[in-house]
Design a binder for these strands. Structure first.
Lengths: 151, 151
DNA sequence: TTAGATGCAAATAGTTTGCATTTGT
DNA sequence: ACAAATGCAAACTATTTGCATCTAA
């Protein structure tokens, strides 16, 4: 078997009662090498390149499973294209999407620990992760818009 | 023309240079009557019921446009189903999605004003809205899981 | 050993496109 | 008047499903 160095998530898979199959480990590896954002189309290509024996359906079954386990979350980055899956390394992820050029700017801090705790207590829920998306204009598009407005 | 009582958003449409067509006003009305969440399939049905002359393609074109204008945001609530569009009344929206039963619990407060301001200053961006999604287990599913674990 | 997972290929269904026609401004 | 927007229906494409086979535990 090839080198699959992703202890933690594979462990979580096994602990939840799922088999550590080649398809699952390969998809996991491709996701983890994606740098945080990957579309289903790109994922299909890369998984197929890594191991042509893995079928398309299995890749989609992995995406389902990993979403249910909060490893990833599908979201729409480019409008009306195939979904983009974002990795949620510690159960959460945050980014800004530019409405003009679709650039994605990531940031780390969210200061949502207090809100998480408050919601869990008030609503009697157990929270395992979150996704925070801001929408607006990136620096470049702010400048362009200002220039356009001047003309 | 029927009663289209949605001043603010229609105004924003016009101000951005878009024509106030029957298709757009009807889709806007259906979205605003949706209570905050609606799938593209449901939307198509309701628009068609409201005015059978409106074509499917126009509805999708509206969804695109309204997303670009930050009136709505597509998201995946049920895993792997048609996208759900959430209304962002004041540019933002927040909810909790139960990973077990897919129930959506909305909440109002997010305390993100300070973070918004900080990001705008630090990254030189202009932010117009945000979506915050928490994932986890709702009260019912927490209880069920506890019961199951006891058996 | 065996329930769970896979790969395949066909079926499905949501969404987009091209174009002639209509409509808001 | 005329650019923008529409409706239609055909084309597309991503995703799902059914089933025989395989495999991790």
């Amino acid at each position: 078997m090839p080198d699959h160095a992703h202890g933690s998530r594979a462990d979580r898979l096994r602990d939840a009662g799922y088999k550590l199959t080649n398809a699952r480990l390969t998809v996991l590896q491709v996701l983890e090498q994606s740098g945080g954002h990957i579309t289903s189309t790109e994922l299909l290509e890369r998984v197929s390149a890594a191991d042509p024996a893995i079928g398309r359906a299995s890749v989609f079954r992995c995406l389902d499973l990993f979403t249910r386990l909060s490893f990833i979350r599908p979201t729409y980055i480019d409008n009306n294209v195939t979904p983009t899956y974002v990795l949620m390394p510690d159960g959460h992820h945050h980014h800004i999407i530019c409405n003009a050029c679709n650039r994605v700017i990531e940031f780390e801090e969210c200061h949502l620990e207090a809100l998480t705790k408050e919601l869990e207590e008030r609503l009697h829920v157990k929270l395992t992760g979150h996704l925070l998306e801001f929408y607006g204009l990136c620096e470049n598009c702010c400048i362009e818009k200002a220039v356009t407005a001047d003309e």
